[in-house]
């Protein structure tokens, strides 16, 4: 697959983010640049408090930057009003979190179907089955989260993130709560989604072992993207 020639799915240009003001002012990001390409896995690494979560929240249109511009599909969405954002988020991003955030009362299938339905998707039930099968959970569809392993829960969350077919999956430490073997299994799944379906996967992590799945690694320190390394195996 040749992704290098295609335009970025989304990008951040000279993003600054300051929390609070006066004495409590925290500069979380300064002059951060980043672009997301189809089919790649981009890791975001950096020490605690460096601004990784802030960066991915701004990228996912969950947080307004203090400065700079956010582009989605080549369009500058920085100044769009709040009410315009849910639709763009629904069409563009799927989110995966460390804590899975599945409704404990709902089965895997219902959790995924609920998200699809709430995004206004068609045939939520049918679509949810397809997605759960795609993440290897066809035999666990009717299990409640409590009866699934951590890795399986994260796969349900990934299936849910894929509802509505968004081109970009954003994960904030999606493997942090998993043991190594399971974590690598989840990354393997994300790798497949990138390679075979051309989705961009952006993963915030502390774990250097995940690098083997990545195409690029953005290193964040003190609110700056200090380096973006293209990994040799991905070239």
């Amino acid at each position: 697959m040749t992704h290098s020639s295609s335009a970025p799915l989304a990008s951040l240009a000279r993003i600054g983010k300051t929390y609070g003001d006066g004495d409590t002012e925290v500069v979380a990001l300064a002059d951060a640049d980043l672009s997301i390409n189809p089919g790649e896995i981009l890791l975001i690494e950096g020490p605690s408090g460096s601004g990784k979560t802030t960066l991915i929240s701004i990228l996912g249109l969950l947080l307004k930057p203090s400065r700079g511009s956010v582009f989605v599909g080549g369009r500058d969405v920085t100044a769009l009003p709040e009410r315009a954002l849910p639709k763009i988020r629904a069409e563009t991003f799927g989110f995966v979190f460390q804590g899975f955030n599945l409704f404990p009362a709902l089965t895997a299938l219902e959790n995924v179907a609920l998200a699809i339905r709430m995004k206004g998707g068609r045939h939520p039930e049918h679509e949810a089955r397809r997605l759960l099968a795609a993440v290897g959970l066809e035999t666990r569809m009717h299990h409640l989260p409590a009866n699934l392993s951590g890795g399986q829960k994260q796969r349900v969350a990934i299936a849910r993130a894929l509802g509505g077919n968004p081109p970009i999956i954003l994960g904030d430490e999606p493997t942090a709560a998993l043991d190594t073997k399971t974590a690598l299994g989840v990354m393997d799944l994300l790798r497949t989604l990138a390679t075979e379906q051309g989705r961009a996967v952006v993963v915030v992590t502390h774990d250097p072992r995940l690098e083997r799945f990545a195409d690029r690694v953005a290193r964040v320190e003190d609110g700056r993207v200090i380096a973006i390394d293209t990994l040799a195996h991905a070239a």
Binding site: G60, L62, P86, K87, I88, R89, A90, E91, F93, G94, F95, F97, G99, N101, L102, F103, L114, A115, M118, K119, G120, R160, A161, G163, G164, P166
Partner: peptide, 12 residues
């Protein structure tokens, strides 16, 4: 958290 996740993903 669950509702927030759905909101993040553009749930109306």
């Amino acid at each position: 958290r669950e509702y927030g996740t759905l909101k993040a993903m553009g749930a109306r």
